[in-house]
Amino acid sequence: MMQRATVLLLLALLTLTVRPAAADLVVVAGPKSGVERLTQKEVVYLFMGRWRQLPSGIPALPIDLAIDSPERAEFYRRLVNKEPAEIKAYWSRLVFSGGSLPPYTTEGREGLIRLVSNNPGAIGYLERNQVDSRLRIVFEFPATP
């Protein structure tokens, strides 16, 4: 009994310490965005509010997933190597100095897919296996060795 409990506990601890493989995130746009491909720099400029126009000339509408979603944290870690608190501090400076507003936040992946497929300027990020025919992949992070 005791042994069994110990083994179970060990197993539980192991599964907790094994981090899930890093999400394979991609940046997506709608079919009417007029955009085939974005560079990482362009994605940074759009999501950090420095530039608000897609290369096709359409006003860009970057979309974030919910503040506590793992994809969102992972996205900014891979994009600019920043933690969620740093991204929040960055936007606090812009918002409270009367500058620009941060990306629109949507709850859930289904909402994001709907928004991106219905708005030509919308761009968002998702796990690759959730991308369907309504979306176009416009940026993939370089593979980490």
Binding site: R52, K88, A89
Partner: peptide, 28 residues
Amino acid sequence: GPDNLVLRAGRMGLELYMQADSRHVGYS
């Protein structure tokens, strides 16, 4: 246009120096 040219009027933060208009936002 999409923020390429922005006009503001009223009372605004004075950017005398870089980041001078967020001096009170300690979190930033």
